[in-house]
Computed example of a mutant assay.
Amino acid sequence: MNAFQMITFIKELERLKDTTRTAYMRSGRRESVAEHSWRLAMFAFALSDEFPELDHFRVLCMCLVHDLGEAYDGDISATIQVNQQEKIRKEEEAVQRLTSALGGKQSGAILSLCQEYNRGETKESQFVKALDKMETIIQHTQGTNPPGFDYEFNLTYGKEYAEYDEMIKAIRDEIDKETLKKMNENA
């Protein structure tokens, strides 16, 4: 890889700064995919001492790349029913397109991490998936959402990913308490 290829890739990543998610910030503006991925990585980093068995470099990289596939078609709300296999296929194609300037080895490594995340079979991917869902819900309770926002959906969203570990489950329980509080405030 040369300097031009690297700069081309980094410029292409700007798309994720402009790609908004369905979560809102405290200010009322919509959160970007890049902001979500950064905070997810910080969430994982802050918990790293609690999970010494994990490959934390792999975890942090997975946090940073897990939503790269949203660069071209955007974020699809979890409340919208879609064909998950088709969504994953399109996102993996987008990752290949986004990373094409890097060349085979780096592009392949990033795609491999995205696929590992999507499969959710490794300890690292299960950890990232659990935190990904919880970070989203934290943003929903922290943000200034539009009237009629469906907080109740958050009580079940991704809950199955938190069941594998007591610490993760405890964090999820606290997040659910915040969701219930938000629901009561908006009732």
Results as ranks from 00 to 15, higher is better:
Thr8Trp: 13
Phe9Ser: 12
Ile10Asn: 11
Lys11Thr: 14
Glu12Ser: 15
Glu12Gln: 15
Asp18Thr: 13
Thr19Phe: 01
Thr19Ser: 02
Tyr24Cys: 04
Tyr24Asp: 03
Glu31Lys: 00
Ala34Arg: 08
Ser37Arg: 11
Arg39His: 06
Met42Asp: 15
Ala44Trp: 08
Leu47Gly: 08
Ser48Ile: 11
Ser48His: 15
Asp49Phe: 15
Phe51Thr: 07
Pro52Asp: 10
Leu54Tyr: 09
Leu60Ile: 15
Leu60Arg: 04
Cys61His: 12
Gly74Ala: 07
Ile76Tyr: 03
Ala78Pro: 11
Asn83Glu: 14
Asn83Ser: 10
Ile88Met: 10
Glu92Ser: 08
Glu92Thr: 09
Glu93Ala: 05
Ala94Trp: 07
Gln96Met: 11
Arg97Ile: 13
Leu98Val: 12
Gly103Tyr: 11
Leu113Ala: 00
Gln115Tyr: 04
Gln115Lys: 14
Tyr117Cys: 00
Gly120Val: 06
Glu121Cys: 03
Lys123Leu: 12
Phe127Asp: 00
Val128His: 02
Ala130Glu: 07
Lys133Arg: 14
Ile137Ser: 06
Ile138Thr: 04
Gly143Ala: 02
Pro147Thr: 08
Gly148Cys: 10
Thr156Phe: 02
Gly158Phe: 01
Asp173Phe: 10
Glu178Gly: 10
Thr179Phe: 05
Lys182Trp: 04
Asn186Tyr: 06
Ala187Pro: 03
